[in-house]
Amino acid sequence: MTQESRPGGTRRGRRNEPGRRDTIIDACLDVLAREGVAGTSHRKVAAQAGVPLGATTYYFDGMDGLLHEAFTRFATSISDRFERRMTAAEDLDAAREAVVAIVLEDVFGDDRDLVLSHELYTLAARKPAFRAITSAWMARSRAALERHFDAETTRMLDALIEGLTIHRALDAEPRDPGEVRAAVARITRASGLQH
């Protein structure tokens, strides 16, 4: 009997243990954060997850399949945080403060998020299949911003969020959080949507 791929990446003929697939995806993100894409292997992911090596190939079609699932989970988690902030904002001032909080707290909430983001960006620059993940991430971010800002301002804010977050994370000197608030205020001056 041949092993055909099933929806969700599993194969016929083997036992599907509940939660194991999720455990492998989470372990892959841990290995990616520690080793980068170049240092990530099925063996390292299996060891991190505490599963047999064959489990990684049972649930995923090759390393690209596993990386795609892991980076999709990561990007979705960042987008979810972003959307929650913007959805909770009830007016333009609250939306501006939400953008500030996204830069200061959410996008790269810690060094792990920063590393994973940059690993994803580098992979997406090289492999178009991964560009779909970053494109979906950007589309969700813009849709969340467009609840409060016009399309042109949204594009500028999206770039500002990305740029400021990277600069703040990689700058050797601590940055004044007030500069984030000032930049958001400048870009969004007279640009909010009427509610």
Rank of each mutant, 00 (worst) to 15 (best):
A144E: 05
R43W: 05
A38I: 02
L104W: 02
K44T: 01
A144K: 07
V184Q: 09
T23V: 08
L67H: 06
L66A: 08
E90V: 06
G36C: 04
G50Y: 07
V103N: 04
V103D: 02
L53H: 14
G19F: 06
P177A: 08
T72R: 12
Y58A: 11
Q194H: 12
T72L: 05
H42P: 00
A144T: 09
R168W: 09
D61Y: 02
E179L: 14
A101I: 01
R126V: 03
L120C: 10
R84S: 09
T2D: 07
V184G: 05
A183M: 13
T154P: 10
R34F: 01
E90Y: 00
D80R: 11
I102Y: 00
A70M: 11
R43F: 07
L92N: 03
D111G: 14
R168A: 11
R73D: 10
D113L: 03
A94C: 04
G50N: 03
G39C: 10
L67R: 05
A27V: 11
I166F: 10
R147K: 13
I24A: 04
R96L: 04
G109Y: 02
T40L: 10
A125G: 15
A89K: 02
M1F: 07
A139Y: 04
L164W: 08
A89D: 10
M1T: 08
V37R: 15
E69G: 09
H42N: 14
T40E: 13
E105W: 00
M156D: 11
G192Q: 09
A132K: 13
H148S: 10
E173K: 06
I78L: 12
Y59C: 09
I102A: 00
G19R: 01
S117Y: 13
D22K: 14
G8D: 10
A75S: 15
M138G: 12
A95N: 07
S77V: 00
E17W: 12
I133D: 11
T87V: 13
F74I: 03
F149L: 13
A129T: 12
H68Q: 13
T87G: 06
M138N: 12
F74S: 03
R142T: 14
G36M: 08
E119W: 03
R181I: 00
D93E: 15
D30L: 08
E152F: 02
H195I: 09
F108L: 04
R43N: 04
L157N: 06
A70C: 09
T188E: 02
G9Y: 08
R73C: 04
M1V: 06
L157M: 12
G109A: 11
F130C: 14
V37L: 12
R126F: 05
D26I: 01
I24L: 11
P18D: 10
E179I: 14
L32Q: 05
P177Q: 06
T2Y: 05
A190H: 14
T23F: 00
G65A: 05
M138K: 13
H195P: 14
P128G: 04
D30C: 10
F82A: 00
R140K: 13
R126H: 13
A125T: 07
T76W: 00
T76I: 00
M63I: 15
I24S: 03
E146Q: 15
F71I: 09
A49C: 06
F108W: 02
